[in-house]
């Protein structure tokens, strides 16, 4: 057990951090369209060139470094499907150049990145398919901070022999949990800054115990989600993956309500950055649900119920 970064992880995160500080972040997301952004192909290109999208060893079950990179990406509000590439594709022996989307076989409706994806990873009950769309997938107007496409009538074919559906679904859970952690930490940090600066009744509103307790619980919830997601990425355990996603989903409900509440009206202006992170959480939570109710998956993984 070691809860601190080793020198390699430190170096990777420092380099990723430098790249993200220049080419990602809320200002970049505003440029891409804010809560209705386009896909950041430029960022993907830079990440790929620097080798950050290949930090997970193919087929290895230890993807901790990849999860750390993804957490940083998500915390910078990147408009990128790099999470799928970092944590899901290494389980599949496939070669895809551009962005991918991940959906389940029964999916019908909006899906993150579908309109921009070169390929869709389609998770079934006991098989996984890689579907390369034969015609463009239409965009959906969505204002939850992600580029979204409309997935209907998935074409047949593309079955990947021997690809473990359960493992792919599990890694999808780790990816979504990790992305939620990055976005939640962004929302929490910006809120802590706000309540520390904003004064009413001659005192910082963050000095009121009602606000302090609310944010302390948020922080405990996010920390729990973070360490479970990292542990799941390290061990590759399906039960820890389900727990990580459950914790992240539950935490995201607290974060959504409380960070907005403590911002007052400022929290629902488009000029301010908070909504860029919080709205994303709604999309991520719906995606989490599409892989099966997280808490039910957790109960299933532990007791077979």
């Amino acid at each position: 057990m070691d809860f601190t970064l080793d020198s390699h992880q430190e170096a990777v995160l420092e380099a990723v951090g430098t790249l993200l500080s220049r080419h990602s972040g809320p200002a970049r997301l505003h440029d891409l369209g804010g809560d209705e952004p386009g896909y950041d192909h430029d960022l993907d290109k830079r990440l790929a060139e620097a080798g950050f999208l290949d930090v997970a060893e193919p087929l290895s079950t230890c993807r901790l470094d990849a999860a750390l990179v993804l957490e940083a990406l998500s915390g910078s509000l990147a408009s990128s499907a790099a999470g799928w590439r970092l944590l899901v594709l290494p389980t599949l022996d496939v070669d895809v150049e551009g962005p991918v989307a991940v959906v389940t076989e029964s999916h019908s409706g909006p899906a993150r990145f579908a309109a921009d994806a070169d390929a869709l990873v389609v998770i079934g009950d006991d098989r996984v398919r890689l579907v390369r769309p034969d015609r463009p997938i239409p965009r959906v107007r969505s204002r939850l901070g992600w580029p979204v496409g409309e997935v209907t009538g998935l074409s047949e074919g593309g079955a990947l022999d021997g690809a473990p559906a359960a493992a792919v679904r599990s890694w999808a859970r780790v990816a979504v949990a990790t992305e939620m952690v990055g976005a939640m930490q962004f929302a929490l940090d910006i809120t802590v800054r706000h309540v520390s600066d904003r004064r009413q009744f001659d005192r910082a509103i963050g000095s009121f115990q009602a606000v302090q307790h609310g944010l302390a619980e948020c922080s405990v919830a996010v920390d729990g989600a973070r360490w479970l997601a990292l542990e799941a990425a390290f061990t590759g355990s399906a039960s820890t993956a389900a727990a990580a996603l459950t914790q992240a989903s539950e935490a995201s409900k607290l974060i959504f309500r409380r960070t907005h509440q403590y911002h007052g009206a400022m929290g629902f202006t488009r000029e301010y950055d908070l909504h860029l992170a919080t709205l994303r959480l709604l999309a991520l939570r719906s995606e989490a649900e599409s892989f099966g109710r997280p808490a039910a998956a957790c109960a299933h993984e532990h007791w077979g119920i």
Partner: peptide, 20 residues
């Protein structure tokens, strides 16, 4: 089932936070 999954998760999160 939902309550059980949420409770198990809370135990797991507490475990990692103690390990830290």
């Amino acid at each position: 089932v939902e309550a059980v999954g949420v409770a198990k998760t809370a135990c797991e999160a507490a475990r990692m936070l103690c390990y830290r």
